[in-house]
């Protein structure tokens, strides 16, 4: 009952937040300089072109009128038509979504696995060489821009050692696993540095707690102690961070998608802005907002599942 009330309350808040997102995006987009016509025809655009295309798209109407029509259509699931793709924006977005979703899950899973393994190793070998190496090496990832990491991985693992494809997206589950490994690894390199240090610190805190001391005194050691008693109590902050990373990735991993030639939401968002394609931009932003709101609700619920002491009230 408490969970249902919590869920309804959070969903209500989410609807208000979503409305604010649509309004904010609409206002900000309208404040942008430029025009759709110029995005299509470039330097040879005439004022007649701009006026004609604006009229066709209803962009010469008052702003409140445009927003009202947009919201009216959105409630019917219609985000408008993309001027660059020449078809409904939601069709374009939903075609790109699976790539981004797959990449986000892949990156989070890779990051989580590597983070847990490294953090546990570091915590168990506290202040020894292993700990120092694990704490310092991933930090290098923080100092490297995504496009450079991606390009280097492509150079090393797609050209020098041709293990993976050099960008692009192969169809099917196996094709996705193969082609999205390097992009997911690129994202993993960037996120692991932060997460390992965070999880290691939590693990050390738990390892120093009294109940772990008691467990040890009863002879509980090794992986059983770590996996059943330490990790579940230390991992909450990491779950939060992973959730936020996942939600952020659902809006598109802009640079990584560009480097690896992936047809995801990030690529869509960039071209939407460049070409003044409001329907695409608004659709991706709303979708990303929905994802972030839902992931946050799920994280809150997950908290209470992982640690029953955390209430939902």
């Amino acid at each position: 009952m408490i969970r249902l009330r919590f869920l309804l309350r959070r969903l209500g808040q989410a609807v208000i937040t979503l409305w604010a997102v649509t309004l904010l995006t609409f206002v900000m987009f309208k404040a942008l300089p430029g025009s759709v016509a110029f995005g299509i025809t470039g330097i040879r655009t005439t004022t007649e072109d701009i006026a004609r295309i604006n009229h066709q798209l209803g962009l010469d109407q008052p702003l409140w009128n445009q927003y009202g029509r947009y919201m009216g259509r959105m409630f019917q699931g219609d985000f408008g038509s993309s001027v660059t793709y020449g078809k409904p924006a939601m069709d374009v977005i939903l075609t790109a979504l699976p790539t981004t979703l797959f990449l986000a899950v892949y990156a989070v899973v890779l990051t989580a696995v590597v983070t847990v393994v490294l953090a546990v190793l570091a915590a168990l070998r506290r202040d020894r060489l292993t700990d120092h190496v694990i704490r310092s090496v991933p930090v290098v990832g923080l100092g490297m821009p995504a496009f450079w990491v991606g390009t280097m991985l492509l150079f090393l693992l797609a050209y020098k050692l041709p293990i993976f494809p050099a960008g692009g997206l192969q169809p099917g589950f196996v094709g996705h696993v193969k082609t999205l490994f390097l992009p997911a690894a690129t994202l993993g390199v960037l996120y692991t540095a932060v997460l390992v240090r965070s999880l290691r610190a939590s693990l050390l805190e738990v390892l120093d707690s009294e109940y772990v001391l008691v467990a040890r005194s009863k002879g509980l050691v090794g992986s059983r102690l770590i996996l059943r008693h330490v990790l579940p109590n230390a991992i909450l902050p990491t779950v939060t961070l992973l959730g936020l990373i996942f939600a952020g990735l659902l809006g598109g991993a802009l640079i990584v998608e560009a480097v690896f030639a992936l047809p995801g939401l990030g690529s869509l968002l960039i071209s939407g802005f460049q070409r003044h394609d409001f329907a695409i931009v608004q659709g991706v932003v709303v979708l990303a907002a929905v994802a972030i709101l839902l992931v946050n609700i799920v994280i809150d619920i997950l908290y209470s599942v992982l640690d029953p002491r955390v209430g939902l009230s």
């Binding site: 496009f147 390009t151 797609a158 494809p165 050099a166 960008g167 692009g168 480097v259 030639a261």
Partner: peptide, 18 residues
């Protein structure tokens, strides 16, 4: 005909035979 916006990626695709 595939799209690769990044020129470095296109170069690696050529050099790797992709």
């Amino acid at each position: 005909i595939n799209t690769s916006a990044d020129p470095n990626t296109r170069l690696i695709q050529l050099r790797s035979g992709q």
